[in-house]
Design a protein around this nucleic acid. Structure first.
Lengths: 209, 209
DNA sequence: TAGATTGTTAATCGATTAACAATC
DNA sequence: TAGATTGTTAATCGATTAACAATC
């Protein structure tokens, strides 16, 4: 792996490579050229090769790329080659939807706990996880190796919650609340702003390009 | 509005402007300069002015921008100045989470119906909406003015469902299934690929930049 | 009027695409 | 070996930032 900075445009594309390579594996395809892959994915072959070469030379001249080797390398780059344990803060519909997402297992994501303030929600079972009260958060994090917190709380609560979780050692935030978190430099957040996404759709609809 | 093409980078930023302007309104702020807004949003003042000027001159030299005027203009650009009626295909946790999202009302999004194949889910109530069987989809769309379909179905079902909805006249797809939809050129989709998003987070965590 | 701040042009920076020598 | 296809450098394109004249 190279030490020059990888642009976020490249990183955003990696999961898509991973997905298409997984499909090729399911189809029993052993090798693929940048040209074939680019056609499947609707990008240029040049971009495929440039993207991959940010991380190393995974191919072989005259042959192309070995599909399962390449997929495994991308998995390592993405950090999904070993389990990532997460907790979910907010046991509403969205939190439960995430907790119940079956694909997580194959991607090495493990939901270890769900927390909520609301006593009506505490005790609810999602798969094999029982929603816990927030008062148990500190102890739980201390006793489990949690690397990611998903925030599915109202936006009013999100910033304070992120701050608290940071103080408990969490450094990665998957943020569904409709605010931009302000975090210390050693922490990261990835936003899923659903209504922003929906507005992009209405833009397209209203400005048929 | 101008007829040269607006880049998707600009469009992705519009909802964020909308959000920050709404906050300023809530705070009672009447006017804002590109410089002030840029500091709030952590971007350059130059970008703010360039972005806005893609759509027209909304400001005034020596004064800045009138907050509520600007927000309303952005609402028009985004197409959220009038109601957008949507249906949700898939009445699972995710579909219900979307249907119950309270903020939609203020953004002029109206969920008119939820559909599912599973007879155990059909009949379930989400707010004031009862989940309907897919067999009623055709008639429902014919009798309601639906512009957007949210797809919260398994990825195996998504492509066929999109095709069917297209044939019934739907042109905008908010796709939560983990596939890239292939649609005719007069249709649009906006993807919410949750696991892709999560993988970006693990990338950051594993490659602390 | 003087000061502030836009709208817009020009300069810079970065990302994508094209081209091709290296090599399997 | 000849053909195929990578890895990588160079060219192009587009997006961001800087600068400043226009003007409220």
């Amino acid at each position: 792996m190279n030490n020059r900075k990888i642009s976020s445009a490249v990183i955003r594309r990696l999961p898509r490579y991973y997905r298409y390579l997984s499909e090729l594996i399911d189809n029993g395809t052993e090798r693929v050229s940048s040209n074939e892959l680019s056609k499947l994915m609707n990008v240029t072959a040049s971009q495929v090769r440039q993207d991959l070469n940010n991380f190393g030379g995974f191919g072989q001249q005259g042959y192309g790329y070995n599909v399962s080797f390449l997929r495994d390398e991308i998995a390592k780059i993405l950090g999904i080659d070993s389990p990532n344990q997460m907790i979910i803060i907010g046991g509403g519909n969205l939190g439960c939807a995430i907790a119940g997402y079956p694909k997580f297992e194959s991607r090495n994501f493990v939901v270890k706990g769900i927390f909520d303030v609301d006593p009506h929600i505490v005790g609810k079972k999602v798969r094999d996880i029982t929603v816990m009260p927030l008062s148990e958060l500190d102890v739980f994090i201390a006793h489990n190796d949690i690397s990611i917190a998903a925030l599915t709380v109202p936006k009013e609560a999100a910033k304070d919650m992120a701050k608290k979780l940071y103080s408990l050692g969490i450094r990665a935030f998957w943020n569904f609340a409709h605010v931009d978190l302000e975090l210390p430099k050693d922490a990261f957040s990835e936003n899923v702003h659903l209504s922003d996404s929906l507005m992009q759709l209405t833009y397209m609809l209203n400005n048929k390009k």
